[in-house]
Each structure stands twice: as structure tokens, then as C-alpha cells.
Design a protein around this nucleic acid. Structure first.
Lengths: 124, 124
DNA sequence: TTGACATATTCCCATATAGGCATATATTTG
DNA sequence: CAAATATATGCCTATATGGGAATATGTCAA
């Protein structure tokens, strides 16, 4: 099987950096396609294609206004990602302290080892 | 150009649902590869490959213990995703109220239109 | 109608998957 | 050493991508 489609969910859609830029830009207010093009300096077809993906997964809303179409981020579509990442919120405190601990330990080790031998490069 | 590699950053790595499962599982404590296999019911080579991706982007730490290798989520690697999604936090309140507003408006419209004509299927 | 403007789609291509399967590489134990 | 255990990697294929260029579709204005 190949990789899941970018349109399969918000996680996949958001993996593309330009789409993240677009979403940030469109978070505050509506933008026409050409305004997006001007702001992000990407060619118009590219923007349209990214918008298509974002629309398919419900991350942007679209509204017609004469010959232009106005897009805006649907922030609600980001909530699942936020919720998922929040699951780890309580862990990074612990890990940070563990990392600090480890750094201190390493510093101590290398200090005491300095007059004995050189530290081998560590795997991970 | 093709899609960015899954190993290019945390966003791409996390786009794969099974990798998200793995990260959640490994968040609390260390697991050996076979324990992951048993818990997630995925074949071992698949798990190893996912772990490889997660290691490459720094989302898991690995430690050797005899013939097994113990993996644990590095929650700190999730923070960029959390930070990015948080940018939209203040918007989804507004949008929610707007959606509610719209739903109410639609309800009212269809109520008044009920004895006139049928609502056409709406684009988006 | 014709032309100008705004946006979307199509075609082509290099690239990277994820899954299934076989196999290689440790590491421990007898 | 050999056998067993634990994990990683290699190979194959169907599938989807993002960028670039060209072009189609849609809408307004004269």
C-alpha cells in the first residue's frame, strides 16, 4: 500500500509546510486566491491545489464573491490535532527534567573521564 | 517534486495513523519491539520500520537491553505540533459561534422555505 | 459578443512511500 | 560452535504526491 492520501485527514493535509502557511494566513480573515499567491509567493495553480486539499479535509471554508473566491481557515478542523498533541502535554515536563538530569550526568561523567579516555560517539 | 519524506519532520512522521498509535503507547513507559507488536497487532517488520521513522525525526528514544531494544516516546518532539495547533486556539471559539449562528440561520431558512420549495444541495 | 480577469484542472515526472515477505544482523544460551 | 531469540533491513509493487507549464472554466465589463 502507498502512503495515505493527503486528503485522508487533517494530519496528512497539514504535513505539507505550505499548507500550514496557508492555514496560518487564513486564520484571521478571508483571503482571495490571488491575495494568498501574493502573500506566500507561490504560483497560483499551486495555491489552488493546496486549497483543494484543505477544502477536502474541511480545514478551510470557501465563499464566492463575484469572480473571486474567498477562503478562510476553519480552525475547528485543527482541534483533533491539538487534542492529539495534548495527550503528551503532561509528559514533556518529566522528559525535560530527565533530559536535564541526563545532561548533568553526562557532564559529570565526561569531567571525571577527561583524564582517562575519550568518550566514544554514542548511538542515539 | 514528490511528497516530503516521512522522515523530514514530526508533522510528516505523525501523519501515519499507526505511528500515532505507537507514540501514544510509548508515551508512558518503555516498550520492547515485541511488546509493541503484541499491543498493536502489527507485524514486526512494520513496527521496526515505523520506529525507524520515529527515531529519525527524534520522536522516540531507544535504549539497548540485552537482545532487546526499548523504545519510549520523546514527548518533547511533539511540542512543535502542539505549538502550531495552538496558534488556532483563539479562533475556534469564534468559528464555533459562527457555525452555530449559521446552523440557526439555516434552520430558520428551511423552516420558512418548507412550504415554498426544496433546498438545493449546497456546495461546501 | 469579445476581452480581461480570477480560479481550477490536466498532464507529465521524479520520488517516496506502506505493506507483505524473505532474510540479514545481533545477542544470549546450551 | 549451534540453536534460539529479538530486531532490522532489503526487495517488490501499487499508489499518490508536488511542482511546472499549459489550458480549461467561470465571471464581469464594455
Amino acid at each position: 500500500m502507498a502512503r495515505a492520501a493527503t486528503t485522508s485527514d487533517a494530519f496528512n493535509a497539514v504535513a505539507e509546510p505550505r499548507r500550514r502557511e496557508i492555514l496560518l494566513l487564513l486564520a484571521g480573515r478571508e483571503y482571495s486566491v490571488n491575495e494568498i499567491v501574493a502573500n506566500l509567493r507561490v504560483d497560483q495553480p499551486s495555491v489552488s491545489k493546496h486549497l483543494r486539499v484543505l477544502r477536502d479535509v474541511g480545514l478551510v471554508r470557501m465563499r464566492c464573491n463575484g469572480r473571486q473566491k474567498l477562503y478562510q481557515t476553519n480552525a475547528d478542523g485543527i482541534r483533533p490535532l491539538h487534542a492529539w498533541t495534548s495527550e503528551f502535554e503532561r509528559y514533556w515536563r518529566h522528559q525535560l527534567s530527565r533530559v536535564k538530569e541526563l545532561a548533568e550526568k553526562r557532564a559529570a561523567d565526561s569531567a571525571s573521564a577527561a583524564n582517562k579516555t575519550v568518550n566514544p560517539k554514542e548511538e542515539q
